[in-house]
Design a protein around this nucleic acid. Structure first.
Lengths: 115, 115
DNA sequence: TTAAATACCTTGCAACACAAGGTACTGATT
DNA sequence: AATCAGTACCTTGTGTTGCAAGGTATTTAA
């Protein structure tokens, strides 16, 4: 049995849960296009694939959390800059709370587990 | 559009990522049976359904992270007490690291987002 | 024997991350 | 003008898995 398999699989699982949150957080501080979002996430070790990101951005747009505008690129095809909406900021506040709650929950179990 | 829908859905998503981790953490500090695990998770606001827990425990057992023993109950049917294995403890260490990494990642984005 | 409480488990559905594959624009090199 | 490399967008198919709903079994008490 491959030891790293379970861990790797679970890291993926953990990431899944916070992906939307992470993306909203990034966009809350400035507009970005898909590739730059992926890059920024990679920088903080939250690795995400293109095939995950594009559908997710489209979903968030449909939900009204994001909009976008096209912008010329210095090199290559135009970029789709995503922007967070007011509604998106509202929801982000809720996600902040959800993350805090989850963190507290895990910390509680962790400390309890030290017994 | 229902405001709470997105948040609720996302809380579920976040929970998903840490469920295996949470269960291993709980079992690391003592043997428990399914219903008591669910109860303990509820106490720290990590709500999980039976239909999620039973298949998950079975999966973790198949992976060799857990084993179980039957034990009589003071009331009602016998209980299946799950126990973490040595291998499970090894993997748990990896999950601890994964959780820390994820937390750090989110905190980084969050702080960056305050700009 | 019926009911309530506890505990176990399965089935079917829906959500969703990802690998792989595809399209299209730009600028540089042949 | 044709080709290639780099960048950027997007879709399809597959597999995993959380959950609601429904089901089985044991014990105790009325």
């Amino acid at each position: 049995m491959d030891n790293t398999g379970i861990i790797e699989n679970n890291k993926t699982q953990m990431r899944r849960g916070v992906l939307e949150y992470s993306i909203l957080l990034i966009l809350a501080s400035g507009d970005e296009y898909a590739s730059s979002i992926i890059q920024k996430l990679k920088e903080v070790d939250i690795i995400v694939a293109e095939g995950t990101t594009y559908p997710l951005l489209i979903r968030l747009k449909k939900l009204g959390l994001l909009t976008y505008r096209w912008e010329e690129s210095p090199q290559g095809p135009p970029r789709k800059y995503y922007m967070i909406t007011d509604y998106g900021r509202e929801q982000l506040a809720g996600l902040d709370a959800a993350w805090d709650e989850l963190s507290r929950g895990i910390e509680s179990i962790r400390n309890g587990a030290k017994a």
